[in-house]
Write a protein that binds this DNA or RNA. Structure first.
Lengths: 239, 239
DNA sequence: ACATCGCTGTCAACGCTGTTGACTTCGGCG
DNA sequence: CGCCGAAGTCAACAGCGTTGACAGCGATGT
């Protein structure tokens, strides 16, 4: 009697017993509302209406909590129209992965340094490797191109994230960034000045361009067994 | 009980007056010896044999110090043999940039979110854009491929850095990581298991492969004005 | 030459972080 | 009912970046 654990509501005062799920819900809510920078143990405690140190009864430390939170956020994959070509499916998978990275770069980096790869990451890897195989790549080539794809995603996703979650609004103004390069001394930075109007392109377009470059290489690899140099070389071109 | 500045410094004896250069030297020494994780204001003070807060007489805050330190570390460029082909020079430039990133990923990310691009970054951009132009690209194409190159560098450099500067030694053991994937349930992760022996390739090789894919696209763009999809009209050079 | 004033370094302290150990309370089980 | 481990609370520690008040050095103006 006394406190009824079933009558718990967010503003109510009463609160069900904590468990990992409940804590992760709170953490996820904080990240969604205020960003990962504000995700502190004390903030989680406040969100739960509990003492911050109560969390330590369920998670060994903050790192363990973050890993689990990251796995939860990375667990969801895209819904793919099975009628799409392999190439288009791979494109969609890549875009989706980049968006995951872009949305939660800090958590993604945490997962990346985690030696015990989580099921989410393993499923993503399996899906992409499967598509590459179906496009005609040997397991070895698939693994190599998969590494390229991962790097591509990390590079763009991270750049995106830095710009969006950075606290300096000027980063979002590509026009202003171009102007900086346009106004450099032309004798010292001739090429930068010349290319200034085209620098800092739309990142979505840049990502797609990179994806196409990689997918072209994949198809070329599937056709000829060679990444395919465009030179009219008659011999060794790969060092 | 005044402190005698001419007789009180650990090791060296007298400590001259502080200035930005001296402080940056100390900071750089700490980063080199113990990594950026140990670079705290208090640690800098200890390295200088001075009170930690003295640093604030020369730098507005830690961020400003880090930006300046990053610019210093990124200022040095590669010595290029002028006899090299444009492609090889670009390859060298790319490798060098990746190594910079790899060596100081945190500082590199700090520079990336800095709206006022530092001279080091501007010089690097100018050099690469110049090489792309000399390979036959229009300023617009050069800017686009430059973005691709940046992403490539960030992706690989960051991945490298995470593995090397991560505190978990298991990350360095690619063989062990492959084993993890090899031992996954084959019915659930068929493609991951099949590709397991070839996953986690040597990152230097992966970087070079990615570089070649990009440079191939650059040359194709220079020749045809088109990134070049490997469709049937493509005269494959190597069977 | 003396007084002045700003720059530099020192010290103590604030608010924040993750984390620990001791204490209390709750809930299920014999 | 009584027990006992799990769960929650409280105070505290060590570390972080940073601030404001104070003290000495050094150059400067008269």
């Amino acid at each position: 009697m006394g406190v009824d654990p079933t009558a718990a509501a967010p503003g109510d005062g009463a609160r069900p017993r904590l468990d990992r799920e409940l804590i992760l819900d709170a953490a996820q809510a904080i990240v969604a509302k205020e960003g990962i920078g504000k995700l502190t143990m004390r903030r989680i405690g406040a969100e739960l209406g509990a003492d911050p140190t109560a969390v330590y009864r369920h998670f060994r430390n903050k790192h363990e909590l973050l890993i689990e939170l990251a796995d939860r956020l990375f667990g969801i994959g895209p819904d793919l129209d099975p009628g799409l070509s392999r190439r288009d499916m791979l494109r969609a998978e890549l875009r989706y992965a980049m968006y995951r990275y872009r949305a939660h770069p800090d958590l993604a980096m945490l997962l990346a340094v985690q030696p015990d790869d989580t099921p989410s990451l393993q499923r993503i890897a399996d899906r992409m490797l499967g598509l590459l195989a179906e496009m005609g790549l040997s397991p070895r080539d698939a693994a190599q191109m998969f590494q390229l794809i991962e790097n591509h995603i990390v590079g763009v996703g991270l750049y995106y994230a830095l710009i969006e979650h950075g606290d300096d609004p000027r980063l979002l103004d590509a026009e202003a960034m171009r102007r900086v390069y346009a106004l450099l001394p032309a004798d010292e930075y001739p090429h930068a000045v010349a290319a200034a109007p085209h620098l800092f392109p739309d990142l979505d377009a840049a990502f797609d361009l990179g994806t196409d470059v990689i997918l072209d290489a994949v198809e070329r690899l599937a056709l000829t067994g060679d990444p395919g140099h465009p030179t009219h070389d008659d011999g060794a071109s790969t060092p």
